[in-house]
Design a protein around this nucleic acid. Structure first.
Lengths: 121, 121
DNA sequence: CCTAAGCATTGACAGATGCCAATTCAATAG
DNA sequence: CTATTGAATTGGCATCTGTCAATGCTTAGG
């Protein structure tokens, strides 16, 4: 949300000293930060983290009826977490008769993964 | 939190059909999921995302007095976000006289970055 | 049509989160 | 010692989150 890309003039230094020799500025634009933060936020729960990992590991589509018993959570709660992941674009779903199958959308993690790689490197 | 690594027997299939041909199970252990989720959660805010990126970009240590004017937020709020990042182990701080300098701890993102790379790949 | 199965949605509630104003703390300058 | 500066902490508040019980919706079977 808050942007303020203009670097403040940095007045009022205490004793003729300078705290930083270089002016800092954001490398990523706010829009990118917002997108990556949204993805990170969706992953910021242990249950959802494991859900995504299970889906990723399975490589195909996994039935909700397989996911629910993996956690000590009620079915509605698991459904809620899946909804959050869906709204973040991290997973997709498909209905086949009574069952709902979920799968990972790898592209959703591309931006965040690339950025994180930059940090680590 | 919820683990339940034992795969449920999958009883009560509706009509002699099977919803999944393969049994799914988590690839990452719950402890790893919890660690990565904690890091992702700390990054799950646009302001913190930009803070980390600024620190990463600058490569050195950045004074808080440089960070605050970058956002349309009060100084206590920025300090609050920095504290969250500090508690997540993503950044470190160091005081030099009146000023506090922050820097990124790249190793904190290693696990998450590696996992995300697996998903994308 | 009626019933049951699988999943999603709603409502409610405790706890967490983001924000700011005000205050406190630490360190330097006079 | 006193005043000032940079940063952290506190208190309060509105909003969001994770969870479950209860309910609703959709599809399949009889």
């Amino acid at each position: 949300m808050p942007v303020a890309l203009d670097l403040a003039p940095k007045t009022k230094r205490a004793a003729g000293e300078v705290c930083c020799e270089a002016i800092v500025y954001p490398d990523i634009d706010p829009a990118q930060a917002e997108r990556m933060a949204a993805v990170a936020k969706a992953l910021g729960d242990p249950t959802r983290m494991q859900l995504v990992d299970v889906l990723r590991k399975h490589a195909g589509k996994v039935c909700v009826c397989e996911l629910v018993p993996l956690f000590d959570l009620s079915q509605p709660t698991v459904s809620h977490h899946l909804k959050i992941l869906r709204e973040a674009g991290i997973v997709g779903s498909e209905r086949q008769g009574l069952w709902a199958f979920y799968y990972v959308i790898p592209e959703a993690l591309e931006e965040l993964s690339g950025w994180a790689g930059l940090v680590v490197a």
